[in-house]
């Protein structure tokens, strides 16, 4: 006996969605005179079906005979329980708390850090990390038709390979757009990028070329 009335267990997700649409045309409260009761049942069952499809329950055969002993039932219950445990992911190891350093009373009295980092406090660690990753990836990218090496949010506009020194002019987009000049990877000049990006790019390349920063 199927636990579902409208949706068969063998349907795929797409088929079930199509069936639900078809049923909606038939049982929509505007069409059917049941105050929307059938449609509510269909919607509830569809959600139950979807949940069932995404997380199929583990079911083991119950003792079929009417005269099945409680022991038969118990083996079915134990079997189902072990099957469930086998399909569960292993528990995540709980991180051990960091060793408690003795803190002076004045430090202990400081207020806890804010839960949300404010935007003015600078880019979050992940944004900085992304910039670095994109910068290193852009260095390994072939230049495009404009001679720019682009990866993610970083564009290397200009590169000069001097003896023992590499000078790069960068444009960084994202939440904090800015222009940079780097000497061997170290930022030596930085300013925010505005809408006048074409003029700013030209100026940045001129500065990097003349080493005027």
């Amino acid at each position: 006996m199927s636990p579902f009335t409208y949706f068969a267990e063998t349907l795929t997700e797409d088929e079930a969605k199509k069936l639900r649409k078809r049923l909606a045309l038939q049982y929509h409260p505007d069409v059917a005179d049941d105050g929307g009761a059938t449609m509510r049942n269909i919607n509830t069952e569809f959600e139950r079906w979807l949940e069932w499809k995404l997380n199929p329950p583990i079911l083991v055969p119950a003792p079929t005979s009417n005269w099945a002993s409680p022991e038969d039932w118990w083996s079915a219950i134990a079997n189902a329980s072990h099957q469930k445990a086998a399909t569960q992911p292993p528990p995540r190891p709980t991180p051990s708390p960091p060793p408690q350093a003795a803190t002076p009373p004045s430090q202990a009295a400081t207020p806890p850090p804010p839960l949300r980092r404010s935007r003015s406090a600078g880019p979050s660690r992940s944004a900085t990390q992304r910039e670095m990753d994109d910068y290193f990836a852009a260095q390994n990218t072939y230049p495009d038709s404009h001679g720019h090496r682009v990866f993610g949010i970083v564009t290397i506009l200009y590169t000069a390979y001097l003896t023992g020194l590499t000078i790069e002019a960068l444009e960084i987009r994202g939440s904090n757009p800015r222009h940079q000049i780097r000497e061997s990877g170290t930022v030596v000049y930085e300013r925010p990028a505005t809408r006048a990006w074409q003029a700013e790019r030209r100026d940045l390349i001129a500065r990097a070329t003349a080493r005027n920063y």
């Binding site: 636990p3 329950p57 583990i58 079911l59 119950a62 039932w73 219950i77 099957q83």
Partner: peptide
């Protein structure tokens, strides 16, 4: 109960969460 639910599930037992 387990038996009642097995009837509903077409003769299948679902793993219990509590014994």
């Amino acid at each position: 109960s387990v038996a009642a639910m097995a009837r509903q599930n077409g003769g299948k037992v679902a793993p219990p969460e509590i014994i």
